[in-house]
Design a protein around this nucleic acid. Structure first.
Length: 597
RNA sequence: GGUCCAGUAGCUCAGUUGGAUUAGAGCAGCAGCCUUCUAAGCUGCGGGUCACAGGUUCGAGCCCUGUCUGGAUCACCA
């Protein structure tokens, strides 16, 4: 089924061919929505056609407009302003499209079939030595939303997470706990496991600094002090023991990692994200090492005198990159190679997307080249979904200065705010406490998710912890509120036994109403471009503008009262579709909508 | 220093492959609108040299070049 835009494009191509004798590619037909200040719905920009028509803009536009009106029954009229041909589309067409939307339970959402491409999306990827913070929140929300957007475009999606569960940084918290922890556990302290482990990571850093200072006081240089630090030596030894599968170290490692996972589970659940398959670096780094050694044998890499293995990327305009340390242990790159290998063995992946911050642009550029060198034909095509950092008004978050915004704390604060606000407004007084809490959560998380996702993912964003995230204006709750309003209307209509069938011949919608219809129809296009441009922000901005448009409509037009039967039913049906699209759109952001708030 | 990214209202952000005299929202400020479908809403006012300078063209916030500013990265850290 062709849309009116497609019909116009085709017709214009035919007209240009017939009148001006030129084969015009469809992509050269420039259609856009008519600006508010002008009459019409769809505008053809005729400037690009002038070199074919060899006439002035007005005449060209007139000519084409005349033929379009005669040829296409949907075109009810046109006007010309300079080089712009504004076409009016008959309201019956828009009403017909609205009806189609109403018959489609999930408008704009495409289902995957057996031959759909499979896209794997990696996101979150935490270290198990500290709790999740604001930066992880952006990552998780982007990754989750992206997976929803790909699903909505008919892809098979596998959400995956690579947990960095090993390495020197993990040993630091293990060592600190072992030495200064006095056997503390999450149970004994009542602390979340990830927080407890994180505290020991910090503790290690403090002790290390203290030791360095003492050594430097004795006259050692900074580098000498670092080399002589006893606790750092101990930690390195612990890492070697870990790699040697020392029983005691492994047990400690498992115990503390499990504490962390229990903590992460709580955070992920509250945030509303999940994964289909989780990989652990401890399982993949050896695979990576084997791959690197294979690459070495096959001559793609080279070994330096000290035994370390490198990739020479000077031909690609990059530097040399280390892949294995002199002692044979793995680096970050090594495990990414191994993880990629395992994933492509486990799944029939057509497209691999890594949701990782833009500070790792170089890393992924290199990874792509190295995988390619190793003979993985998908290496070149891996996609790094690179997003900007979350900054505080003073700059980056710094754990040392205690400015890191903790994920759990932030969510809890927002739920508190939502509760306070809702209680003041007192609209949920007949809800049970449990029901009300659920609404507070939906609103708080909706606010957070919308706040994070409305910004272009590529750009850095600023978060000001002092000014808590808004609930008014261009926000998630504004959109949710609009949805709740609509549900209230629909409940009342149902109580009064009104059915939502419409009779196109008995209504003559206002321009504003038709505009809202068109905005609803846009959803489908937006879902597509959100996928091709990998941008949840497009969905967010669209849903906001739809909600805003609806609120204006709501104030301007009576829907249930003081209105005749046919316009009433039309407006109710329109409202219902707006609600449906809001729900779907927010769903693509991973956010819910409440029936009342 | 090399490479990459960004710079739009006091603040946070939009601005669809270049398109219409007046570059949009929200927040903050000011002024209105609840006996009427949810005021977490709606309406209005003020607020801009789209970092700067050139260039490309019928037309540039958008494309090209240079400059300035900020950030990231170029580790035997992850």
């Amino acid at each position: 089924m062709m849309t009116i835009e497609q019909k116009i494009e085709e017709a214009v191509v035919a007209i240009v061919k017939e009148k001006y004798g030129v084969e015009l590619p469809v992509s050269q037909v420039q259609l856009q929505k008519t600006k508010k200040e002008f009459d019409g719905d769809i505008t053809l920009v005729v400037f690009p056609l002038l070199r074919h028509s060899k006439k002035n803009p007005e005449t060209t536009a007139e000519e084409i407009g005349e033929i379009l009106k005669a040829q296409l029954s949907e075109i009810s009229g046109y006007n010309v302003v300079k080089g712009f041909l504004n076409l009016s589309v008959a309201s019956s067409y828009w009403l017909g499209e609205l009806l189609k939307v109403s018959e489609n339970e999930h408008y704009g959402i495409e289902k995957a079939t057996d031959d759909s491409e499979l896209v794997m999306i990696e996101y979150s990827s935490p270290n198990t030595n500290k709790p999740l913070h604001l930066g992880h929140i952006r990552n998780n929300l982007l990754g989750y939303s992206l997976s929803k957007i790909f699903e909505a475009n008919g892809y098979k999606v596998v959400k995956t997470n690579i947990v960095n569960d090993r390495g020197i940084h993990i040993c630091k918290s293990m060592y600190a706990w072992q030495r200064w922890g006095n056997g503390e556990t999450p149970e004994s302290t009542g602390q979340k496991g990830d927080k407890l482990v994180g505290d020991y990571y910090v503790k290690f850093d403090q002790e290390y600094k203290k030791e360095l200072a003492e050594l430097q006081e004795k006259g050692l240089s900074k580098a000498e002090a670092e080399a002589q630090s006893q606790i750092m030596k101990d930690v390195r030894e612990m890492l070697l023991k870990w790699e040697a599968k020392d029983k005691e170290v492994r047990e400690l490692w498992e115990k503390m990692n499990n504490w962390v996972y229990d903590g992460f589970d709580v955070t992920y659940k509250q945030l509303g994200v999940d994964f289909d398959k989780i990989y652990y670096e401890s399982d993949t780094y050896l695979v990576g090492r084997d791959e690197v050694l294979r690459g070495l044998n096959e001559g793609f890499f080279f070994k330096k005198e000290d035994g370390s293995v490198w990739a020479d990327l000077t031909e690609e305009g990059l530097d040399e990159k280390i892949l294995l340390r002199a002692d044979g242990t793995s680096v970050y790159m090594t495990q990414d190679i191994g993880t990629a290998q395992l994933r492509f063995k486990d799944y029939d992946i057509d497209k691999m997307i890594y949701v990782v911050g833009n500070e790792q642009n170089y890393h992924f550029k290199v990874l792509s080249i190295i995988l390619d060198k190793l003979g993985f034909d998908w290496g070149k095509e891996l996609q790094h979904f690179s997003y900007g950092m979350v900054e505080l008004p003073e700059g980056k978050m710094k754990s040392r200065e205690g400015t890191v915004v903790d994920a759990d704390d932030l969510m809890a604060d927002m739920i508190d705010t939502a509760r306070k606000m809702s209680e003041e407004l007192g609209k949920l007084e007949d809800y049970s406490q449990q029901e009300a809490e659920k609404v507070y959560e939906t609103i708080a998380l909706g606010a957070l998710k919308y706040f994070m996702l409305k910004v272009d993912p590529r750009k850095n964003m600023t978060f000001n912890p002092k000014e808590s995230i808004d609930f008014n204006g261009n926000t998630g709750p504004f959109i949710q509120y609009t949805y709740a309003r609509i549900q209230s209307l629909l409940r009342k209509a149902k109580e009064e036994g009104i059915d939502l069938s419409i009779d196109s011949d008995s209504i003559s919608p206002d321009e504003r109403e038709l505009h809202l219809v068109q905005e609803v129809l846009d959803f489908k296009t937006i879902v597509k471009s959100a996928c091709t441009e990998s941008s949840p922000a497009l969905i967010a901005n669209y849903v906001y503008s739809l909600a805003k448009e609806f609120n204006q409509f709501y104030h301007e037009f009576p829907i249930l009262k003081d209105v005749e039967e046919h316009p009433m039913k039309f407006r109710l049906l329109l409202s219902e579709q707006v609600g449906k699209v809001i729900k779907e759109g927010m769903g693509l952001l991973g956010a819910g909508v409440p029936d009342r708030m």
